[in-house]
Structure formats: structure tokens, C-alpha cells
Design a protein around this nucleic acid. Sequence first.
RNA 1: GGAGGCGUAGCUCAGCAGGUAGAGCAACGGCCUUUUAAGCCGUAGGUCCUGGGUUCGAGUCCCAGCGCCUUCACCA
Length: 494
Amino acid sequence: MNKLELKRREKLQQIQQLGIDPYGGRFPDTEPAQAVKNRYQDQQEGQRARCAGRIVLLRDIGKLIFITLRDSSGTIQLGLSNKLLADQWELVKRLELGDLVGAEGMLGKTKTGEITIWVERLTLLGKALLPPPEKFHGLADVDLRYRRRYVDLWANPEVMQRFLTRSAMLSSIRSFLEERGFIEVETPMMQTTVGGAAARPFITHHNTLDIDLYLRIAPELFLKRLLVGGMEKIFEINRSFRNEGLSTRHNPEFTMMELYQAYADYHDMMDLTESLVDFLIQKHCSSRQLPFGQMEIDWSRPWQRRRYADLLKEYAGCDIEDPNAIRAKARQLGIDETQMDDAVVINEVFEATVESHLVNPTFVLDYPAALCPLTRPSKADPRYAERFELYVGTMELANAYTELNDPDIQEANFRRQLKGQNAEESMARMDEDFIMALKYGMPPAGGLGIGIDRLIMLLTNAVSIRDVILFPLLKPAPAGRPAEETENEESASS
RNA sequence: GGAGGCGUAGCUCAGCAGGUAGAGCAACGGCCUUUUAAGCCGUAGGUCCUGGGUUCGAGUCCCAGCGCCUUCACCA
């Protein structure tokens, strides 16, 4: 336990000796700090206020103490004078940065015009035993910010703001979809077979049944079963899990919004995606021109719709129907294409040459059918699948299909493995029950998945996915670093 | 896994021509009833990530390891 904590524990004891519970209790009828400031009007008598929050600044002038109190809405100044609080002065003098307090009193302004609650009654609601980070710079150590997000959130208001925006956007997504007749459903996160995406799953074990289960990599195959069941417009805001590397754009658990609409196709999904995102921008962003790291993204509608083959031609310089040219390009890019199917090579070349150019929102459409085992092939040219991916800021943001509803083709696709993709990397994994569901008849449908974390990144200018996930996955804290936590664990278990 | 950067007080950061460690905030003692990152006087605080090496002497140079960030690989 460090020295600063010991000092604070001394104060804790002193406060307890005054007969005060340092951890407070119910403190009803408070008002957000920001609301108090907004409603305050000069020259009106008798205005009172009651707030609760954390002490983030404290200026002790002797018989007068000014406190900046922060709650989730903002900050407000408390004025504590030893005249008004004579009977509580022993407590007041022991307040320190980080403590949680409730306060009630008359509203007024100081000489300098700061709206201030002149406190008549102060309640300690939670003693802070650990010192807060530096008051001006906040918490800057990236590792500590993620590990102790609970500190990051109140020490760095812009962090709080970003997560509030995330919540507001999630809420807007729901209302947008519900207004259009979509209903929200929940499907299993623990699955006996995985499917719907190409990724390695996490494996866990159910003791009573004595079977291994997989954490879902996508909800797709269950949501389509609901189409068979007669639900026509559904969505799931889902946490999915992929046992892959971590990066600024990948967290092993991430949030996706998947939706399905019966009797629609991927063109409907494009329109829906564009409307939904534009709705969010109008509601939550200042402009349709938004910075993202070094980039400037123009979200103005309509968004570009480009064929996969055309982009490949433009940026890789080769014709999608000329396998030799594409293989030559692949070799030039340093890709070992000898053991790969044509479609896999095409995909490798596309990713290496095209993606980094897609800054403004761009629908990439009509993927090689071989890459899309869950997608309906185009009627006009079955070599291509009715699929699009939406790229923004060089990231894949959304993925959508006209869903394949022919059980025989689906079964054949599940059995076909492409060379150059091992079973783990493939979307084609047999799911007998899903085939059975299709045999009962699934309506033609459009399906869409949007990476919510990445969407929030783009709309709040966060270049790392860890900045939009409250508790991103981290290695366990190295032993010895947070000494106080090790001790807490010991005392908690005893 | 490869490459680059970083690791110094509770926090934010200085320190490099190699000579045994500094500031601000926080803390502690004092003064102060209108402060705004309050101010003033004073005090205390360090395994300079860890382990080796070079050197009379290492926070500083070298090697190895650990952790974090970025990037590449991987990953729709």
C-alpha cells in the first residue's frame, strides 16, 4: 500500500471518529450539474440546488473552500464557507480530491461570475482512498487508461463524452430500425457449430452436457432460421467473438448489428445502410465532413457504388477474368499464389491494392461468387455474388448479401473448400440443421452486418477500437505493477 | 512472429558530453472568506521496468528479457 493511500486511510479513520459514514447512502432528488447552471438566472431570489458528484478540483482559502464537482452532466462549483458550515467544518476540512459528495444550498454567483452552490449541508457519499491522476493532464498513460477505465472516464471528460455518444448512437440505431418495423431479437452466443463468418472461434465447455461449445463468430445462421420461422424484419445488436489478433481495428469481442429483411435484396440493404448512417450523422455529428485520423471523410450522399471487378481493374490494373494477369500481379505483390484457388488470389490482390484507397464511403459490389458461400449468385452472371461490403476510412464497415435461400446450393457450398483457405479460415462450414431450415423454405431476403465499434470510431474520430470499447481486452496486469490491487485481491479473498 | 518508439516520484513530464535525480500537480506543515489548473512560505517523497555487461563511475552506452504503443504479418 503506498504512502498516499495510507494518508487517506488516516483521514478515513478521523471521519469515522466524527461519527460519519464515509461511504454515504441514498441521496435522492439531485439535479445534474449542467442543468443547474442552465436554469440559473441572475436577480432571482430563492434558487436552491442539490447535486452529487466527485470532487475534481479543490481550492482551500482557509475559511472558504471552493470545490469543482463533476457529475455525468458536467461540473458545478461548490462554495463551502466556515460560517454556513460551522457544524460540519471538521468534515469539510478533510475533504480531498476524488471524494464523492452531495451538496445542497443556495445558488449564487461569485465575484468572477461563476455559478456556485453556497453549501448549507454537505454529505460525504464515498471516500476515495487512492489519489486521482494529475488534475490538469488527466490520466495519459494509455495502458492505465484502458486498465482503469473507471478513472479514465471521470479524469478525462472527452473519454466520457465519446462513450455517451456511443450509447446515444446505439439508441438511435434501435429507434431507426424499430420505426421501420424491425424487431430486435437475441440468438445464442454459445453454439455447438460456428458459422456465418470466417474466423477462429473461442472454445468453452459445458460441464453438465459434457460438450464443447463455441462462442459465436456471427449470429447470421440463427437469424436466418428466424426468417424461416416467419419473422420478416429482424435485427440483433450482438457481441461476437473471434479468436484472432488484436489491432487498432480488431478486438476479440466486438459489437455488430446484423439485420435481415424478407423479400428484399442487397440493393435494399445499400439504401438502408446509407439512410441509417446518415441518420446517425445528422443526429449526432456536426457535419457530413468528418475527420478520421489523418483522413477527411466526406459522408455526403449518394455514396459511391463500385463493382469489385472495376476497382480491381483500376487499382491492381488487372482484369478479374484473366487469372494469369492476376496471378502475375499477386507474385509482384509478394503473395505466394501457387497453392491458392483463383478466387482466393483475386481476394488477396484486392485487399493488397484496393482497400487503402477507399476513404470516402464506398459500396464495393458483386464479389466473386466462390468467396461468398452464403450469398445468392447473380441471376445475370452467376460467377458473381449479390454481395457488397461498405468501406470507409479504408476499413471494412459493413457487409451485406442477397441471402442464399436454395438449400441444395447452400449444402454444396458448405462442402466446397477453396484451396488456400483452410477450414478455419473458411465461411463454408457444414451446419446440417441450417440446411434443414432452408429446406422448409426461407424467403428471399437481404441481410446486413455493420461493425458497430468501427462505425463509432469513424463518427467520433477514434483511430483505435480500444477507444470506443469501455473495457478492451488486455493482457493481465504484470505482477507487481499495481501493488495496491494485489493486496486488495488478497484481502477480498480472506 | 518481424520492425520502430516508449518505460524516471501517486500523476504529467524533464534529464543524455556517462559523474549517483529534477519540475509541476498530488501529499504533509503553515498563512489566507471570492478562488478558477487559486496563491505564498516550508517539508517529505525514487528498485530511474528487470537482469547482465562496458567503465574508476550507468537513468544515460551495449546485450538479453518483460510491459505498453505503433506498424507489418495475421485477420472479411
